[in-house]
Design a protein around this nucleic acid. Structure first.
Length: 254
DNA sequence: ATGCCTCAGCTCCTGAGA
């Protein structure tokens, strides 16, 4: 079984690339972030024409998530139950007996901002909900754009970017709290090349110079950890003509 | 350098992203 996550930075712009990628990488489930489109404009037919099922939860201009799967997604949940939020950030469903949660974590902008405070509240709510989800669904994967670097290996310039957004102690503590629920960073279960990133700024030729961050993650539960065969970042779509600034991350389970 | 790209939208500038 293969699962993947990709922040597409507008599905309207990236739909052809998503369809191409799925054709070349026929994963069992793919979660998307930053679809940036309302549900009435979501390209459901184009995705279903490929034989996939899709659930989606969007809004105008910002955010928006989707879950594409070969088998239908069951028990679909949108956003974090009990957490009032006017932003579309989470979609969850059970696919082939695995609870798949796709999430677009808040950016947070700057450590002293209101958006950072919202990010902290959102992370608290995610943690509480995830504890309940894990109790009900031991076979669980949480994946998406976390907007958090786990440690300095995930940062192209850890000195220059120390304590800036995505690299703060508070964000990393929240990440560790998720891990402490019984989750594992699938990417770090394997030896990986130095300076492996999943996002590169559009500016200053950041991709070409490999000045990036690893902020897109796949966490697998204790029950799934023994099944993980590989976890990779697919940089190929970042080389497309009009790329997303993020690359897909893929995990293979047996 | 609160820029540099890219995207959406009350679109020809602005806000947000990371």
């Amino acid at each position: 079984m293969q699962l993947a996550t990709w922040n597409v930075n507008s599905l309207t712009v990236r739909l052809p690339q998503v369809l191409d990628w799925l054709g070349a990488n026929p994963v069992d489930a793919l979660v998307l972030q930053e679809t940036k489109t309302t549900d009435d404009k979501f390209p459901r037919e184009a995705i279903e024409a490929t034989g996939y099922h899709v659930s989606y939860f969007g809004q105008k201009t910002y955010n928006g998530v989707a879950l594409i799967s070969r088998e239908p997604g069951l028990e679909v949940v949108k956003n974090i139950p009990g957490f009032e939020d006017d932003m579309a950030r989470v979609i969850a469903a059970t696919v082939d007996g695995v609870r798949v949660i796709g999430a677009y974590f808040p950016n947070g902008q700057a450590p002293d901002s209101d958006k950072f405070a919202y990010k902290m509240r959102w992370l608290d709510a995610l943690h509480a909900w995830l504890g309940r989800e894990l109790a009900q669904h031991p076979r669980l994967v949480l994946m998406g754009d976390f907007n958090i670097t786990v440690d300095d290996r995930d940062v192209w310039d850890p000195v220059g970017l120390k304590d800036t957004i995505h690299c703060t102690v508070q964000e990393r503590e929240h990440f560790q709290n998720l891990i402490d629920l019984g989750l594992h960073d699938a990417y770090r279960l394997f030896e990986q090349a130095d300076k492996s990133f999943s996002w590169w700024d559009y500016r200053e030729f950041a991709f070409r110079r490999n000045r990036g961050l690893r902020i897109d993650h796949i966490l697998v539960s204790d029950a799934l950890k023994p099944l993980v065969q590989s976890c990779t970042i697919d940089k190929a779509p970042r080389k497309n003509e009009r790329p997303s600034d993020h690359a897909p991350v893929v995990v293979t389970l047996n």
